[in-house]
Amino acid sequence: MLRNAPPIDPARLDLAAEYRAKPFGRHSPDLQALLNVMRRAENCQDLILVSIAPNRWVLGHREPDGKPPTLFTDQVFDRLEDGEWEGFKRRWRALTGQELVLP
């Protein structure tokens, strides 16, 4: 992470809960600020969601130079929202060093 990027506070589980409840649509200013950090080029992990069948999705990693994405087929999601949430958790872990576990 760039030194001047705002940190992610691992204590702000309320923001994670807000995102999980509503990954799309209007967010609180604090959640939007957190997402903006996670989504920076150096933090976003180049994730992608790939539909493998109607209403079935896997996460993947975007590769340079137009190569096909690497697919993470160990988890299949029935909803886009669940794939977005898994991406959020991966980034949380990378930025805070802690697993994201919501009550």
């Binding site: 997402l35 080029a41 969601l49 493998i52 999705w57 096909p68 886009l80």
Partner: peptide
């Protein structure tokens, strides 16, 4: 399918299907 901060412009992860792959 290219690396980069896609979501800062779109608000969601990029989505493709296996025909795009």
């Amino acid at each position: 399918m290219s690396p980069g901060p896609f979501e800062l412009a779109m608000g969601t992860l990029p989505t493709v299907d296996l025909t795009d792959v």
